[in-house]
Design a protein around this nucleic acid. Structure first.
Lengths: 243, 243
DNA sequence: GTCATGTGTTGATCTGAATCAAAGTCGTTG
DNA sequence: CAACGACTTTGATTCAGATCAACACATGAC
């Protein structure tokens, strides 16, 4: 899978250098970080962190997709965030989280023990600064998602989702014929968008029938017309001839 | 209006000392802050900040209620945040915001010019730390709201909203008979909850009929049974006698 | 007072998405 | 390769909440 964030910034292989920590890659602290890191893997479906559990480490996604979700007492759940490669898990200064973190696909994390990581953060203001930026970015995207959940129709939700995937996974193609991989099942997409899996499936079928997207298989998606994604129903039957 | 946050922390009158800046109130920096502050007022309905506009100041709400909202091209809008007295407006290190800020009622703000405020923040790590905490709090409540918008029913949305108001406005009453003031119109509540104003009105009526809440007038609300707020429909007709 | 105007309630109807139900597709394992 | 399970599609039906519409109730201006 392509990770534009990693190739965009020329720096060594550890993702945390890029998104979470280092806007100024030539400092000493990075060597300290480097010596602290460990890798952990989780199988698809496995829990990474439970709500309320003490937070032992911070981490950066190396590969795979993880999700943040909240659950009501009766089992209804809503994803509240999606973590793609190079994204950061962690709450500077917090020891608990308010949501579950689950591996959506097989996931590899690059982890740092929380305590020494926080010590490092406290001692290097530009790293703290970078983490604040990340938190504000998260806040902005959470608010975008609130608009989606509260006011968009099923088709608009799917369109926004596809557009987000294209934006994050495909930076080099021509304006049309973008390619993406759906990183999750219909059920998980439904949880992310505040829909049911049936509605997600129907909307994909409708977009396909309208010639806006196409599937080579269940996961691999071609967007044939990015602009039309955001248009009305594409009810193009042209008003057929009188019978 | 009662502002529990202000009375809970014994400190001088400026709200920014309490929520945004100062967990350690005896430092010199506060005097610098004190000399920087100015007050601004906005009438109900007036815009405080527009999306994309350069951000000239940070501020703390002294009185009144303001809201953050996002709007789709066709006019559908969704509130993405509600600012009550002592809440903070501002994005350390950012010069723009991604949403509109509007005065929901008449509002008074305690403002600080952004540049000198940020200088102060850069020079005093514990203030930066406090701002990070605020950002993470915001993120947590944004995610709670995502669960509400994506998965809760109209009744549950109203119940959660009422409970939030009670929690923030009324800390000293007995477990039942909590009192609150609805700080906004039905229409604004609907925008906050991802509903229409008619649905909001109907749900209030239903809760009243079920004896769970009561209105002395349109704005003043008594919660007679906080627990029952979160129960099922309260369809208590008991299965009447056979006709 | 009465006439606007903004706000709130209630009723009737419609509709988009949920729910219920049945098949179809793919990948895996024995 | 057959049989199983996980995932997906599609159809029929239902229902919560939206929409459309009318009226009620304040408040303030004149």
């Amino acid at each position: 899978m392509t990770v534009p964030h990693l190739t965009a910034v020329k720096c060594s292989e550890c993702p945390i250098r890029h998104r979470a920590v280092c806007a100024r890659c030539d400092t000493d602290e990075l060597d300290r970080l480097e010596s602290m890191k460990t890798y952990r893997s989780f199988a698809a479906g496995e829990a990474i962190l439970w709500r309320g559990e003490p937070l032992e480490f911070v981490a950066s996604i190396v590969s795979g997709v993880a999700s943040l979700s909240k659950t009501l007492e009766d089992g209804r759940t809503q994803m509240v965030g999606l973590l793609l490669p190079s994204d950061f898990i962690g709450r500077p200064g917090r020891s608990e989280i308010e949501f579950d973190v689950t591996a959506t696909s097989d996931v590899t994390l690059c982890c740092f023990d929380r305590k020494p990581f926080e010590k490092l953060v406290d001692e290097t203001p530009h790293v703290a600064h970078r983490l604040m930026e990340l938190a504000l970015d998260e806040l902005d995207s959470a608010r975008d998602w609130m608009l989606l959940l509260g006011r968009k129709t099923a088709r608009e939700k799917i369109a926004t989702f596809i557009e987000m995937l294209v934006r994050r996974s495909d930076l080099r193609n021509a304006p049309n014929n973008h390619t993406t991989v759906l990183p999750m099942t219909r059920d998980q997409i439904a949880n992310y968008l505040g829909l049911t899996l049936e509605t997600v499936s129907r909307q994909f079928s409708a977009l396909k029938k309208d010639g806006i997207i196409d599937f080579s298989d269940r996961k691999n998606l071609v967007v044939k017309n990015l602009f039309a994604l955001h248009q009305e129903t594409g009810d193009d039957s042209d008003g057929g001839v009188l019978a």
